[in-house]
């Protein structure tokens, strides 16, 4: 029997988050709450891909820090954009 591993759960989770984000975007006005929710889920998606698909968890720590910083900066800018 085929094993349903961690990678498969992450993959399904990422697809579920994408559909959830689209649902939010399509059905609700773009309020600050929706924008923050989308930004946080984008951050989470990025971190999952960096650590588990790109396999930087346990690899070179400087590369991991750089990649993770990128996915803190731009989702934070999305949140920041709600203030203006």
């Amino acid at each position: 029997m085929k094993r349903f591993g961690k990678l498969e759960y992450y993959w399904l989770g990422l697809i579920a988050i994408t559909l959830f984000n689209t649902f939010l975007g399509e059905n609700f006005e773009s309020t600050a709450v929706v924008t923050i929710l989308v930004a946080l889920t984008v951050m989470y998606k990025g971190l999952v891909v960096i650590d588990h698909f790109m396999e930087l968890k346990g690899a070179n720590r400087f590369l991991r820090i750089m990649m993770r910083t990128y996915f803190f900066i731009f989702p934070s800018l999305i949140i920041l954009s709600t203030l203006f």
């Binding site: 689209t22 773009s30 924008t35 930004a39 984008v42 990025g46 891909v49």
Partner: peptide, 16 residues
């Protein structure tokens, strides 16, 4: 490349 699309998608298609 996938990571870049993860950022592009909400910016252009979801957030208003």
């Amino acid at each position: 490349i996938d990571l870049m699309w993860i950022l592009i998608f909400p910016l252009l298609y979801v957030l208003r």
